[in-house]
Design a protein around this nucleic acid. Structure first.
Lengths: 376, 376
DNA sequence: GTGAAAGCGCTAACAC
DNA sequence: GTGTTAGCGCTTTCAC
């Protein structure tokens, strides 16, 4: 699954895949024990109706008991609870949310579960502890082909109003006319300050920092491997790069600015273009870690040593950036914190207390081993 | 958020949090433009009823158009589609799944989004591409207090039958009497081969490998920092440790076997107990990376150098294991692959084609920098 | 071709 | 106290 992880030496001598160990237990949808006395053997879950029938009460009563409402005799409640236990009944989130206003679940909408979004997710998950909300992460972008664009809108519409009370959208893409009455906070949005509240990191300053670090090391011929051109963050990072270069009197060679696409597989061609030339750069600033890692791999394939022959610096600081060889020096976004803050903003929104609309967090430099002064 | 990430040097000079940038745009739930001609101003999403009303047809017709069913005049369909576009209608996953049999969404049920489960998630996400399914990850364990135990059962019941067609459960805990007719595959289950199909890694062999690696380095006084005692994987890893030790004629000091709990915060006390003694071990095998990382941190706090004074080896190979100092040598579970395989098995189950029930993948040793021969 | 009506599992008024 | 009823948004017969 990409990303080499240090020296890997397979010492396991066991059978690689004893997939033949089929025990007798099969997942047969045989009808449950107690429930369903009549002939209808829907294999599905046990519903409130099943409980009502077995307990000899109405579904309304069961609902009251389950939800701890008033107006139920202690004896009845006890009996119902017993049946609930017996049958292993658990109310359907779907049916409940269709009826109720609030569900107490917050949605995290991502295009895909990759290192960036999962880091955010970790931060959100840690922060949700004790808030009374549950987390539901939905990957709406994976339906390729069709309309990969606008998945955020689609996802919010599909889940919002029912199922989730609000959403934090992890989107490097458009977020514009989203939210059909569903409170939403966007992380790393396409456009800058747009409709919804947002949290992002200071890409402009971070890119300056990265570039100046390279310059400080003595590099003058520096390449920029950009992110997707339609993204605000990518635009800002390129701008920061250019600003830092010119602030130090360094020229930016147009041939040394390429688009990497924020995905390792998309970084392949531009990486080759950058390196496969007489006057290749001595250093590269990649607009995100995954491209940077791919950049290193490509350099290796071409016989270049990192950092001796080529310095590479990334952006994001997903944990994967530490697993490549050499470990990547990178500009760290406070990913966990960004997730936590987004959650906080969303909950504030849900509680009606309005706070700030846009939060921009600072980045920091994480020095590992992929950068060095240029070869003399 | 824990886990130091190499040398961190904050160079950002920007405002740490310009949370005052409240633009004029507020997320007011004002009624949508075209829809809702009557007085009822539910701020919510646009429903099929809205579309029907605006298009001047029945909801049944809209449903047919949206789902591409036969029996609708081309002209009608066109008009409806136009309104759908206009209003930005998107059918509610909830309502739809309540009515339909299949939803084409697969659930990934986790207790919490931490490094282990998110790695699996990455593997699943990558593997789901092109299958026609969408991914929905649900964190059911975060509701502390109540019944942290049995969240799997609860989650499956709440989501299954409706919303998700099947689930892969990421559970180091019980999985036993789960599945109310919902196809389920468990990753890293509590019990070994139980009711549902499972995929895990070869903990026994992996633990042997780790222990033998330490022994091969020359260590004889080796400690074991275990995982939660109620877990099968933890049991197997301890067994592998003991087997390897005795196979090499080494004694296991009972004082050098402690429980770490699979969570960094739970590893604190036992780590101190292990290190805070005259005859402390020269090496530690921790049953998972997060404990191992915490172990290293504790060692540092106590003035010990890793690996010079203490060797530490972990288990799992979550990417975080590379971000600590020194980078952790660890036994790698093929996490992405395990996720992908679990998904494959689940889809097979859904398609009716039954395959193997239990898949056990081999581990491998990833050498980084946290182990060395014992000080002479 | 189109719409009326039933019902998925559940909750919330409102009767009894 | 408890049951009856009316939907939530949607799909699906089955009449017209």
């Amino acid at each position: 699954m990409g990303l080499g992880a240090g020296a890997t030496k397979d010492l396991a001598t066991t059978t690689p895949s004893d997939s033949s160990a089929v025990s007798g237990t099969r997942l047969t949808p045989e009808p449950r024990s107690a429930a369903r006395t009549d002939g209808v053997d829907r294999p599905g879950r046990v519903t409130i109706t099943d409980v009502a029938r077995v307990a000899g009460v109405s579904v309304a009563t069961v609902s009251k008991v389950v939800n701890g409402r008033y107006g139920v005799a202690a004896s009845t409640a006890e009996r119902v609870l017993e049946v609930v236990e017996d049958l292993g009944y658990e109310s359907s989130l779907v049916a409940r949310s269709l009826r109720r206003r609030r569900t107490n679940v917050i949605g995290v909408l991502v295009a895909e579960f990759e290192p960036f979004s999962t880091e955010l997710l970790k931060g959100i998950s840690a922060a949700i502890e004790g808030t009374g909300y549950e987390l539901l992460a939905y990957s709406g972008g994976s339906t390729a082909g069709a309309d990969r664009v606008g998945w955020e809108r689609r996802s919010v519409s599909r889940l919002g109003g029912t199922l989730i009370d609000g959403a934090v959208i992890v989107t490097p893409t458009v977020v514009a006319p989203v939210h059909d009455g569903v409170p939403v906070v966007a992380i790393d949005p396409h456009t800058g300050p747009s409709g919804a509240p947002t949290v992002d990191s200071d890409s402009l300053e971070g890119a300056r920092t990265a570039t100046e670090y390279l310059i400080g090391l003595g590099h003058t011929r520096i390449a920029y491997l950009g992110g997707r051109p339609d993204l605000e963050s990518a635009r800002l990072r390129e701008l920061g790069f250019r600003e830092a270069m010119s602030a130090h009197g360094l020229a930016v060679d147009p041939d040394l600015v390429r688009v990497g696409g924020y995905r390792p597989d998309r970084a392949d061609a531009p990486a080759h273009e950058l390196l496969d030339r007489e006057d290749r750069p001595t250093a590269v600033f990649a607009a995100n870690d995954l491209s940077a890692i791919r950049m290193i791999e490509v350099a290796h394939e071409m016989g270049l040593r990192v950092p001796q022959d080529l310095s590479v610096i990334g952006y994001d600081n997903v944990p994967e950036s530490a697993t490549c060889t050499p470990p990547l020096t990178t500009i760290a976004q406070p990913l966990h914190q960004m997730g936590a803050e987004a959650l906080r903003m969303l909950i504030d929104l849900l509680d009606g207390s309005e706070r700030e609309q846009h939060l921009r967090l600072p980045t920091s430099l994480v020095e590992r081993a992929s950068c060095a002064p240029p070869a003399a």
